[in-house]
Amino acid sequence: MSDLAPNSQGTVSAPRPRSEPRPRPTSAPASRRRNQSQAARTARRAATISARRLIASPSALVTVGAFYLMVSSVLAGLWSTAAEAQGGSIVGYSSAALVWYIVTSEGAINAVPLRLIETIGTDIGSGTIETEMLRPQSVVGLRIAGEIGSAVLRLGVCVVVGTGFALIVAGPPPVLGAALLALPALLLAVIANIVAHHAFAAGAFWLRDAKSAWFLYQKLVFVLGGMLLPLEVLPRPVELVAKALPFAAVSYAPARLASGHLEPEWLLVQIGWLAVLGVVATLLFRAGERRLIRGGS
């Protein structure tokens, strides 16, 4: 066919020359650097867009804050009462420390949509993910970046609400330095939680559904992640196993710091698990995408 084609007015026009030529092939390291910087810029933008979407629906933020306050106040009340019944403390946590523990562990978990695994699984099973595979960047990378953007906003709400609640109910944090360390730990916990969600949800590439993965993950985080209770409450062998698992990085680590334990090594543990979970999620998505391409949806 000729390059000249009639336009909608019936006249003839040549295809318009491209004003920004496609980048020419460059050396491998330069190309890799350019790709990395491009990916970082895209990730930042995906996070910003996601946060803006949440701001555009402020009722969602109000719901997060209200639900978080309700759950935290019930659990904090239960643990405070239990501590007072035990003579003022349980496994080394005072009544006030338990309040700070619960508002932090709940905040870390509530900052991430509770059914995120199920949502990702549905996107995989329904073929929505295929649309994203038609883009020249990592599917899982963009998804994680987007989720981090809105989760940081939700985390901000939880930190403000939780700190206010804990100050009123339990007074200032037991150790201020440890509480300050809990802030970066919370951020790491939320990011690790999002990455773990994607790793678990990737099962849907094989199972076509992630409901069971969501159920399992949620229960593991509730108990072995220390969301509902300090891990020291568990029998000693279970406690040791729980502390060695990644679930502790998504809830227990920041809560342990906020409850007055100056143990900065938990930040390193979180960074380590974040790296491991990131590699696992990336590999699982890569394998899942390959399976989708070979097998079809």
Partner: peptide
């Protein structure tokens, strides 16, 4: 993205495509 104006989506998509 349904909550946002298309222009915001275009900026992200543009970034994805370099």
């Amino acid at each position: 993205w349904t909550e946002l104006a298309p222009r915001a989506s275009f900026r992200l998509l543009g970034s994805i495509f370099g």
